[in-house]
Computed example of a mutant assay.
Amino acid sequence: MPLSEHEQQLLAQLEKQLHADDPRFVTSMGSRAVRGASTRNIVLGIVIAVVGLLVLLGGVVIDSILVGVLGFVVMGAGVYVATLRSGKPRAGGEAGKGGPPRRSSPFLQNLEERWDQRNSGGPSS
């Protein structure tokens, strides 16, 4: 169901306001920030999991518990590799860099001030 013209205008206005209030949040919520598992990781994980399954079955055939457990561990590693998220860390997202922390919106700034007042025993608790 498409949006009406009025709803589209409201949505555009909200988007502009969000861009003005919190550009860092908008950047982090962009399409590039939502990254799932890459195709390379999925294919590599599946290959590793299949090799692990073959090792597990080989351990069952030769009646070796150690080989079966090794196969299970390799299968688990394959699943882990397949579910890894890809991508480089975003710039500016690392903690510990010099300089004061950036406050991104008045709402968060107000929350931080209230938290600081509460922890420092500010106005009547």
Rank of each mutant, 00 (worst) to 15 (best):
S4W: 04
N41T: 04
W115V: 14
R40T: 13
P101N: 10
L14C: 02
I46E: 00
P23S: 01
V34P: 03
L14N: 04
G99S: 07
G78L: 00
I46V: 11
A91H: 09
M75T: 07
M1Q: 08
E112Y: 06
Q17F: 01
V47I: 12
A77P: 03
R85A: 15
A33E: 07
R85W: 13
G30Y: 01
V67A: 04
S28T: 10
G98P: 15
M29R: 06
A12F: 05
A20P: 04
L3R: 11
F72I: 03
G36P: 12
R85H: 15
V69R: 08
V47P: 05
A82T: 05
S31Y: 05
E113Q: 12
V34T: 05
G52Q: 04
I42L: 14
L14Y: 09
L54M: 05
G99V: 03
S28Y: 09
L70Y: 07
E15G: 11
V47Y: 01
I46G: 12
Y80W: 14
V73T: 09
Q13Y: 07
G30A: 11
R102V: 14
Y80G: 08
L10E: 01
G78H: 02
R114K: 13
S28W: 02
L44D: 02
L11W: 05
N41Y: 09
S38E: 13
R102T: 15
K88M: 11
G45A: 06
A33F: 00
D22H: 05
V34S: 13
L84C: 15
G71W: 03
Q109F: 08
G99H: 07
R118Y: 14
Q13S: 07
V61D: 02
P100Q: 12
P106W: 01
Y80P: 00
G93V: 08
S86E: 14
R35K: 11
V43T: 06
E94T: 13
V61F: 05
S38V: 01
D63H: 11
V51D: 00
S125L: 15
E7R: 14
I46F: 01
G30S: 12
V61P: 01
L111R: 03
A95K: 14
K97V: 08
M1Y: 14
I62T: 14
S125M: 10
R40A: 14
S31L: 09
A37D: 11
G52K: 04
L14R: 03
A82N: 08
S86M: 06
G36Q: 09
G30D: 02
A20M: 00
D116M: 12
E5S: 06
L44C: 05
A95G: 11
R85E: 10
L66D: 12
S4D: 08
R103L: 12
E5G: 07
E5R: 11
L57F: 07
V47H: 03
A37Y: 04
L53W: 02
L18E: 13
L57N: 01
E15I: 11
S4N: 07
G93M: 11
G87R: 12
A82V: 08
G93I: 06
R90T: 10
F107L: 03
S125R: 10
L10F: 03
S4K: 07
L70A: 15
V47E: 07
V81M: 11
F107C: 00
R24W: 08
